[in-house]
């Protein structure tokens, strides 16, 4: 296992998508390689932060009303 391979496998490793033996190899590399350990931690945190910085917004009742009006005019006589 080398550092380059770790980068390539990081995604699957985090998704728990890897066979046990590969996981073991990665774990042991992470334990001895500071660079990859830092990469692993910062990669995981990047995902967490990405989730956190984005606000989830709900459609407001006013927006919903405008949408319904629009759809009703389009639905026309069927409704």
């Amino acid at each position: 296992m080398n550092c380059k391979k770790i980068i390539a496998l990081l995604h699957d490793y985090m998704d728990e998508n890897l066979p046990e033996d590969l996981k073991e190899e990665i774990n042991s590399h992470l334990n001895e390689c500071k660079k990859c350990k830092a990469l692993f931690h910062t990669y995981s945190l990047t995902i967490t932060l990405t989730k956190k910085v984005e606000t989830y917004c709900n459609v407001t009742p006013e927006m919903m009303d405008r949408l319904k009006v629009l759809l009703h005019t389009r639905l026309g006589p069927n409704k």
Partner: peptide, 15 residues
């Protein structure tokens, strides 16, 4: 490309 990511120094800012 991927090669360049490797040159990133290993500062672990997650702490």
């Amino acid at each position: 490309n991927d090669i360049e990511y490797e040159s990133t120094y290993a500062y672990d800012w997650s702490t």
